[in-house]
Nucleic acid binder design. Structure first.
Lengths: 179, 179
DNA sequence: AAATGCACTTGATATTTATCAAGTAATGCT
DNA sequence: AGCATTACTTGATAAATATCAAGTGCATTT
């Protein structure tokens, strides 16, 4: 990308800082922004009838996060997004996003490829989810994404895997014992 | 899309017919094609150490199917793809796909948007998978995708939901009894 | 029409995971 | 440093789901 393009792309975004525990998006609101994480750590999740949180995604430096459906459709968001660690973001609105796609074909391509990669990783997580035991899921996550396991609090990892914190605690114990 | 573009796009694809139970792709081979389903029904799945199949995706008229990772990277496929019903497909190779993206920006856009939608539906399936009971998963699938539940054999639906055929059979029984 | 093979069902039991309750360790706040 | 809050662990028990084994019904083949 040349300097001119870089400047143009940058002009579509606005910076935003978020303190730990602050919301970027709350369920029910329209998701106005797609966020690029420059610094820090965010999560998206939903909350069920029993007030249990279910992690959809974590996003740190270099990752994108939003409620994709709400962002694109304008419908109320199904998910919450908040900061697990203080964060610095670059935000883009849908009109700016669409404009950018048209003005900078390179970005259209960038996002098509980004989305491809996202699909591939979601497919893997899905297959883990439907085919592995709790322990296998944890071990595979640890193997495929060690930074996540290291950086994210344990209860959130449990939620991400679809198991209870107690079960994860016990699994970790047996893994240590096996060594 | 004008006639010229349509003809150009069409020229990148080659047709293929598949009989029921025939493979389009076998685990370990490179996935050479991205397939568009004109007619019929396909599935992608993997097989674990215990020879149990785990459904990743079903694709019927108007859907696309491939092992996305293998298709893009050239690495051996992790999944099998075969026909549940006799099928007619349009196949495109990666070089043709890339060429088409460059020659027809409209298609770049089409796939970016297609991938967005794919991500949204995978996210929903993932959240169902990590947050619902077996019965809730089945009911939600039935509600969100009645054609799938009607058209796909029950054992494959069970696998798609990450439960055993026996459990699904019992769940269906209790649902009927409740009515 | 009889025979074979699948898909689905049903039953008994085992295993995995969740729930509830209490404890201990770690962290944040003033 | 001391107190409060939150995160994690552990134990006892309950609930959900898997496994294994037979059986039934239905369709396909001969």
């Amino acid at each position: 990308m040349n300097e001119e393009e870089k400047a143009l792309v940058k002009s579509y975004f606005s910076p935003k800082k978020l303190r730990k525990k602050q919301y970027l998006l709350q369920e029910g609101d329209a998701c106005k922004y797609l966020a690029f994480v420059e610094q820090g750590l965010l999560r998206s999740y939903n909350v069920d009838d029993k007030a249990v949180e279910h992690m959809l995604q974590f996003a740190w430096e270099g990752w994108w996060i939003s409620d994709t459906y709400s962002f694109l459709s304008g419908e109320p968001a199904a998910y919450n997004i908040d900061a697990i660690e203080d964060a610095e973001l670059l935000l883009i609105t849908l009109p700016h996003f669409e404009e950018m796609m048209l003005q900078v074909p390179r970005m259209e391509r960038y996002f098509r490829i980004l989305f491809q990669k996202n699909i591939i990783s979601k497919e893997r997580r899905l297959l883990s989810s439907i085919s592995l035991t709790a322990e296998e899921k944890y071990l595979r996550l640890q193997h495929s994404n060690p930074e996540l396991v290291q950086r994210i609090p344990q209860q959130l990892i449990a939620s991400y895997l679809g198991i209870t914190p107690e079960t994860l605690s016990r699994i970790r114990k047996t893994i240590v014992q096996k060594k």
